[in-house]
Amino acid sequence: MNVLIVMIKLTVIMILVALSLYSTYIYVRKHRGIIKAKYKFQPYGCGEELTREQVSVGSRGLYWSVVSKVFNKLYMILREKIHTGVLGDWFSLMIIFLVVIVIVLIALSLIGVFG
């Protein structure tokens, strides 16, 4: 059996199960009427009032602070040494790479020719 056909069958299984679970939920929802009590529908803030602005987190504070604690050194090297945004810095890196690749490949071919 082709693995991609297996993939399609598995997707069918997945969607069948998901549909049956989802329809259970819809049935349950229909079954009991929903009580609309205004105070219940505010976001939970441990007893504090939360405004709309406080509910969400900015994209900068999302998880990057956590990751930068762990990978701090690596990130600093990447940002300060490599991705400086200065054209001259990029060129030095790119030219170093060019010189390395030319020297290595020519050396290898010379080894092949004379060795």
């Binding site: 997945m14 976001p43 939970y44």
Partner: peptide, 20 residues
């Protein structure tokens, strides 16, 4: 209970797909 800023049915869709 769904808060005024939350999504109503999408959580169940994602959970059902995960179980599937």
């Amino acid at each position: 209970i769904t808060t005024i800023v939350a999504r109503e049915k999408e959580p169940i869709i994602m959970l059902s797909l995960a179980v599937g």
